[in-house]
Design a protein around this nucleic acid. Structure first.
Lengths: 229, 229
DNA sequence: CGACCATTTGATATGGATCAAGCGATGTGG
DNA sequence: CCACATCGCTTGATCCATATCAAATGGTCG
């Protein structure tokens, strides 16, 4: 699989300014505002969607595929801030710049909308404004929960991760992981070896079944929940 | 010093509903809205300001003293979410309930305002609404930064803590800590022993001077910044 | 088939936790 | 005013979970 995007990433990063902006139909829920007003664009696997410190001009919503946001620390380690799956909105910053970078983990289709356009709607439409605020608040809760995870054991982190992914992208108890062991490790501040060993250990106790490295069957949901504690 | 609040905490937790609400003068900055519209109340050292899962009826602003917010995990460990010093607003929740508990670390004076009253103002006053949103966003950034800290070494965590406290409450490079070693440990997911040893170690390298356990002089600011990295 | 990359597994090292003891400041009762 | 208990903190010894270093395995693609 190619590292290169199917078409040059640069052409995606700056949608034409004259991109047509449909007005938001009043009858739709506020949460649909982004795909309704924005443009859906493809991103190839491993292509950059935006970089840390770039001006945060756009807001993004995953239509298909999986996205990671991350920061590279001074010591060279990479910390993944979040995985985003279809339905998730990301790239929402309050400052003028992105505080994380974003990359497509798999080929993706992503709805993109200009921040200024959305803010203009929000200033007129109270429902949209409240939706935007709710997005910030939900993100805050997600980060708080993740913070609590980081002081727990490797088993607890991995168990919680599996449950979370199961909730978001599973079909009958089987989780298809879009991300590599390295991605998972960087999400939890662990090493790939520890992630791998933890999965093996969970398999030995019949809690999960690693049918292939990216396909995991949750055999004992309650045991995972207990670890999650 | 007493553990008991100077007056029963319960009387503080539910300000009288008929508490007079002054209208917000249009000429003041939005950030002053809380002390202008709210009531300042005293809280004794170690008294509870609100508890996890209680309905989030009020919003709080520290006028004097220091506050900790925390969660007690199922395994009994306590995770401190934040320390709040004068000027900080806290207790801001998006759901209907507090997700953390809050306690006064020292005797405090705290401005309290009813959430509904503030929201009413926000719906009329765009500037106040934006201020509320900005508070949520700033909190998100703070938690993200803290999350990044939790994957670093004990030295880095403590160094960052000292720099942060210096910025917030120092007088010429001397930090007066309101909180105990246990509070600091629970803030970083460390043990008191590790916090104590790390401080001793920083003192041995002449980076800081622990003139008394709660009074710390930052001798080599740039060395701390380097650790912070 | 052979190269490459992701993953697993093994051996060893280490940072921070745990268990334990000592120390200094503060407060209390005799 | 002193003897002593208490509490917060420091320091020492040992343990353990995870990191690090190293090698083997397996899957994918040319």
């Amino acid at each position: 699989m190619q590292i290169q995007p199917a078409v040059p990433a640069a052409s995606f990063r700056k949608p034409a300014a004259q991109m047509p902006m449909r007005p938001l139909p009043r009858s739709r829920p506020a949460g649909d505002v982004i795909e309704l007003m924005g443009t859906v664009m493809p991103f190839a696997r491993n292509s950059e969607i935006y970089g840390e410190n770039e001006p945060a001009e756009y807001l993004y919503k995953v239509m298909s595929g999986t996205v990671r946001t991350y920061k590279v620390l001074v010591d060279g380690r990479r910390q993944i801030g979040a995985f985003h799956v279809p339905g998730d909105v990301f790239g929402f910053e309050t400052g003028q710049e992105h505080t994380f970078s974003a990359e497509a983990i798999t080929d993706c289709r992503i709805a993109v909308i200009k921040r200024t356009a959305l803010m203009a709607v929000a200033s007129r439409d109270n429902e949209v404004a409240r939706y935007m605020w709710a997005l910030t608040a939900r993100e805050l809760q997600r980060v708080q929960a993740h913070m609590l995870l980081l002081i727990k054991s490797a088993q607890e982190r991995v168990a919680t991760f599996l449950l979370e992914m199961a909730e978001r992208v599973s079909a009958q108890g089987t989780v298809e992981l879009a991300m590599s062991r390295q991605d998972i490790a960087d999400y939890f501040g662990l090493t790939i070896e520890t992630v791998s060993r933890t999965l093996s250990q969970l398999e030995k106790t019949a809690t999960i079944e690693v049918s292939s490295s990216r396909r995991i069957v949750l055999r004992d949901h309650s045991a995972l929940t207990r670890l999650n504690s």
